[in-house]
Amino acid sequence: MERRVKISYVINFLGVLAVFLLFVLLFESRVFGAATQYIKGICTTACYTIIMVASLNLVVGCMGEFSLGHAGFVSVGAYASAIVSGALTGKGLPDLALFLIALLAGGIAAGITGVMVGIPALRLRGDYLAIVTVAFAEIIRVCFCNFSITGGGKTMSGILKLSDFYWCYWVMAACVAVMYLYIRSKFGRTVKAIREDYIAAAAAGINVTYYKVLTFTVAAFFAGVGGGVYAHYMTAMIPTNFNFMYSAELLSEVIIGGIGSLTGSIIGAAFLSSLPEMMRQFSQYRMLAYSVVLIIVMIFKPGGIFGSWEFSLTRLLRRAEKKEHEKAEGGVKPWKQL
């Protein structure tokens, strides 16, 4: 068992590395010519959107609660990391270290906000919780509109452009890996149990509030990291970027991809965040397109495109191995019959 787990880690890491090398090859060989920089940018956008959507999926999929205020945590992470990287500029730190410290700061700030919001809000469930999260995100936005350190409602600009795609790819891979392990861990299963049956969970001795707040905080942390990547990619931002529409967009990406499926979140986020870039001329109709996609998915596949299915490289390999095996055996049989 132990060995198998270790092997699966190695296999999955190699898979992630292979995808990375594919990107490097594509970009370095300049297949896209002059558009390389532009496409790299789209890929970076996809990276931070994946982090945000996957983290929201922890709340929506794993915990089974609707949060409509995820953009609030994203904005806390974005502003906190921008402030930290701004303060540390010129201290002789290498760019990568500066970037990682800023992201960590953004994550921690958002995580702390997550605790503060989670403790009162998670006493509520369902619709009530959704409404309260909207309110909290609005409060956060209004605060940022009034603090002078965040630009006081005007654009905060001059943020270092640290979000290089190659770095962002690994940040995204690390975030998704940690979230995946969280869902698979005892914590994740406990939260799932709470979602399944609140009373049974409490009767089994699970401290319901603790596990819910913990999951909410982990989700907020990663939303903050995503926000940090966002800030250092955009280099300028305004609190209204993180309004209700942004939260709704993230939520619809979770739902379209598949509630409870990180695979769905990755593919949903990657596709839907690059979609508006691909059809720039129609970008004002983006929300309309989203709504239509959402309605279609809800009618034909209410659990999202991937449902709660997860892609597994190890499973795929095992299956391929089995097929090879069968083929080999199948090849032998007719010969034997002769």
């Binding site: 299963r189 799932k192 149990a193 399944e196 049956d197 009373i199 049974a200 969970a201």
Partner: peptide, 8 residues
Amino acid sequence: GRHIFPQM
């Protein structure tokens, strides 16, 4: 009532 975790 039958309180179990149905999806587990």
